[in-house]
Amino acid sequence: MVLLVTSDNEQFQTEKDIVERSVLIKNMLEDVGESDQPIPLPNVSSSVLKKVTQPSTGPTEIDVRGRYLSTASTTVESPSRPPILEQSQDETRKRTTDISEWDQKFITVDQEMLFEIILAANYLDIKSLLCRRWLQDGSQHDQGARPPEEIRKLFNIVNDFTPEEEAQIKKENEWAEDR
């Protein structure tokens, strides 16, 4: 077992083979050798560490991953709903430019956690978490993409292009538009 200390000073006893998925910690352990000294992780909060140290094959982690994926996949697919709200296939397939209230709440809460996890995974150097489709589930080839306005809305991005620039970008990429 390895003792980890997070930025908010919580201590975690974690299995060695799990923490060693982090290249950073693995290197630290190799440098320090066998020791009971806690390893400080000043860039990782306890809530994030909980997520990233879950066993990669365990149901919890799949659950976490699934939720973020489906949230984020709204950037390219029709708005996703939690499974319990899923009424019929037709309804979920329906494309709408409005983001449902549920989606919006879910995203504002979870996007942040998603970004924190990505940052933590990057800091800890956890390969299995980094090589992941964060924003999109494997989408079908011919599925239309969300227009830029929707992506801006989803991720709270400011449009800083001039109308001329926008027109130019549109023209440059006309070849990739729906046939």
Binding site: V76, A145, I151, I157
Partner: peptide, 14 residues
């Protein structure tokens, strides 16, 4: 990992 059209849509965001 984004598909072509999504990537191109992202180009036009910001």
């Amino acid at each position: 990992p984004l598909d072509l059209r999504s990537l191109i849509a992202c180009i036009a965001t910001n």
